[in-house]
């Protein structure tokens, strides 16, 4: 019975996204049943839509910059958190992790107030990056905390004992061993940034990110099938990234010689 329920729940989870390809290949502009026949013209339209290309490039740039910066900050925070004791650590980590439990609209509003009303900045992709780094860092820290936690501190001491400096030890021992965590943190941060809407909606200037562009399309029903086609592609890309992440995690486990106890994230 529990099994039947779980499968029913999975169907509930998948129901909406299964509609994506259905309407992406549907030859009609109204997103409703009955269907009107098969077409690939929405995908062709995607191919020629310059605004969409620009939005996609913007989003990729933002996601790349945000994920790299968030992971760099995440490495520093997670290492300090796991390896060192210093006064005020709990408070410092609390502030760094705070965006995890803050409604995104609050982050968006507060940064908007500072950027426009106080600093008088022009909104641009960089303001979006700045905000995305803030919300991605806690995820990176959470993942890297686990990496540093499972890294035996005596491995680093052994390398220092064998004549290497702290810097060399980090490069030769620490970095290779936490690499799966770094890759996972990069992928998660990248995905979060790529999909984030409300902050980008508040902080973007004249260059929309992809979600902001999609939002504008949702108001023009004629373009919605194009959005469906785009969504289908995004779904395939996301699932590919996920499979890559899962594969990377399993490889990390195998390397460390640990049995797979399950638990993505």
């Amino acid at each position: 019975m529990l099994r039947a329920y779980t499968i029913a729940f999975l169907i509930f989870l998948y129901a909406p996204i299964l509609l994506l390809p259905v309407f992406a290949f549907n030859d009609g502009t109204v997103i409703a049943f009955p269907l009107d026949g098969f077409t690939t013209k929405w995908f062709e339209e995607l191919w020629t839509n310059a605004e969409l290309h620009a939005a996609l490039v913007n989003s990729l740039l933002v996601a790349c910059a945000s994920s790299v910066l968030a992971v760099l900050l995440g490495i520093a925070a997670a290492r300090a958190n796991i390896r060192y004791k210093f006064p005020g650590k709990t408070a410092a980590m609390g502030l760094i992790m705070l965006p995890l439990v803050l409604p995104e609209i609050i982050v968006a509003v507060s940064l908007l107030v500072v950027a426009i009303r106080i600093l008088g900045l022009d909104l641009s992709l960089w303001t979006v990056v700045a905000a995305h780094v803030l919300i991605c860092t806690p995820f990176a820290v959470a993942i890297l905390n686990a990496s540093f936690q499972s890294l035996d501190a005596s491995l680093e001491e052994a390398a220092i004992d064998l004549g290497f400096t702290r810097g060399e030890t980090f490069r030769l021992i620490t970095l290779p061993l936490i690499m799966p965590g770094i890759v996972a943190a990069l992928l998660i941060s990248f995905t979060i940034s790529l999909d984030e809407f409300i902050i980008a909606f508040f902080l973007t200037g004249s260059d929309p990110t992809l979600p902001v562009y999609i939002w504008s399309l949702l108001r023009f029903p004629r373009l919605i099938p194009v959005v469906m086609a785009l969504g289908t592609i995004l779904m395939v890309v996301s699932i590919s990234i996920l499979i890559l992440a899962e594969w990377n995690r399993r490889r990390g486990l195998r390397r460390a010689g640990v049995a797979d106890k399950g638990g993505f994230l």
Partner: peptide, 25 residues
């Protein structure tokens, strides 16, 4: 035990599709 990560994987996949589009759908 060796199937658990697969199930979690199945549960998390829909969540990684564009949030906007999921709501729209």
């Amino acid at each position: 035990p060796d199937r658990k990560s697969l199930w979690l994987f199945l549960i998390t996949i829909p969540f990684w599709t564009s949030y906007l589009l999921r709501i729209f759908l």
